[in-house]
Amino acid sequence: MTRTAVPARPTKGNSAKQALEELSRPGPHTALRGDLGMVGIPGIVFAPEEGLGLPAVAFGHDWLQPAERYADLLRHLATWGFVTATPSNHRGLLPSAQGFAADLRTALDVCVGVRLGDGRVSVDSRRTALAGHGIGGGAAMLAAAKRPRLSAVVTIAAVQSHPDVVESARSLTVPVLHLAAGRDTIAPAPGHADQIAAAAGGPVRLRTLPKAQHTGFLDGRHWSDLLLAGHPESKTRKLTRALVTAFLLKHLCEEDRVDVLVDGKVPGTVLEDLGED
């Protein structure tokens, strides 16, 4: 019989620096990789080796980017107990924002509705999130506005590629984390993420990585790096792994041991004041 597994718990009582080091490293679960092609959507999926009632995250890629450039982050989340999936279509010069959002919702539906890992992995529909980088962050916001029973949203260097992104932000009441890059020339900070965060209809956190570039969050090399005038940054990816993992553990798993990375001062980042009560 398959035992019920839960996402790993970080060590209690860590300082921000200690928590950052812990959550930026792989968790205790073995991550397995699969293919979304079984439902007609190109893309990849990662999951722990086994576990029932797990949380799940669907992730949207940026303009022109292959899903493979996010495999490091998605695999990392799987080692901490999350099922993760990213569709790899809508990579043309003029992607459909609404079509991309629809595919993100479908990817999440696949995670919830299909037993993975030869039936040893299942997802709890009450513990799901949408996330994305660049235009994928905007698509995640659009998808979230039409997704019931969602637990959280995460955007990374979000781009307002569609006018309804800000309107979607107003309609959301679930917790949202926006990560912005201080040296971003594609979605400058302050800029896109600030406007989306300011329109939030629910609890929101905007955290800026002052030294990060727009493409610093990516893994590996791609011809688009020349077009976007950037490159992957190991420190940016390390911070992102820890911050995203902490936020999702907090809001999908009710884990309070990560509060220092969700609401506190984290080295290498600035938690922006949005004038909340």
Rank of each mutant, 00 (worst) to 15 (best):
F247A: 06
R120E: 12
A144V: 07
G43I: 03
T155G: 06
E255M: 09
L226F: 15
L226K: 14
N89Q: 13
T240W: 00
V110M: 15
G51T: 08
K238A: 14
G81D: 10
G34W: 10
S96M: 06
A193V: 11
F46D: 00
H214R: 07
G117V: 08
E272V: 10
G220Y: 07
F217H: 08
D184F: 02
D263Y: 13
L104T: 00
G138R: 09
G51L: 02
A101Y: 08
T236E: 08
A102E: 15
W80I: 02
L209V: 14
D118Y: 10
A212F: 06
P66E: 01
S96N: 09
S125H: 13
M1L: 14
H90L: 09
G51N: 04
M1G: 15
R115G: 11
I135S: 05
S224N: 11
D263P: 03
L206W: 04
R237K: 11
E255K: 13
R241N: 09
L150E: 00
E49F: 11
T215V: 13
D256A: 13
A229K: 12
L130K: 04
P7K: 06
M141G: 08
E21L: 13
L64I: 12
P232C: 08
A47R: 10
L108I: 06
L108N: 05
I44M: 12
H178S: 10
G37A: 14
A158N: 09
H192G: 12
D72T: 11
G134V: 07
T84D: 07
D219V: 10
V258Q: 00
L20V: 02
L226G: 14
P95N: 05
S96G: 10
V270P: 01
E272L: 05
N89F: 14
R91Y: 02
A78T: 00
D35S: 13
P10I: 04
A31W: 02
